[in-house]
């Protein structure tokens, strides 16, 4: 199995505790072994289903409407400054 939990956790932005990592690695190994059963099916000429409805691009008119969502979202933000979400420094100086 090519499943490398450190690599996947890095991609998923999850820092896992060592004991958690061992448990998850075992559980995910079992699930990935189970889903291997799909390889028994020949799907060479089958189109994938990403969506069950026959909807093409759905458009609506591009009209300006009043909305207070932005202000209200900021009210409950973990940290905000004026009209912005505030976050810690992105790049640290050495």
């Amino acid at each position: 199995m090519e499943f490398n939990i450190d690599r996947v956790a890095e991609l998923a932005r999850l820092s896992l505790k060592p004991e958690e990592k061992i448990k998850l690695e075992k559980e995910l190994g079992a699930i990935l072994a189970y889903v291997q059963k799909l390889s028994a099916l020949d799907t060479k000429d089958i189109e994938p289903t990403s969506h069950v409805l026959d909807l093409e691009n759905v458009y609506r008119a591009d009209e300006v409407k009043a909305s207070e969502a932005a202000e209200k979202a900021l009210e409950h933000a973990p940290k905000a400054d004026g009209r912005f979400f505030k976050v810690p420094k992105i790049v640290q100086k050495d």
């Binding site: 998923a12 932005r13 999850l14 820092s15 896992l16 505790k17 979202a73 409950h76 933000a77 973990p78 940290k79 979400f85 976050v87 810690p88 420094k89 992105i90 790049v91 640290q92």
Partner: peptide, 20 residues
Amino acid sequence: EYGLRVPAKDLREMYFETRD
């Protein structure tokens, strides 16, 4: 933008710690 935020020294660490 939402809910929990775990304070951290930089943005990247904040993502990892908050999600963990």
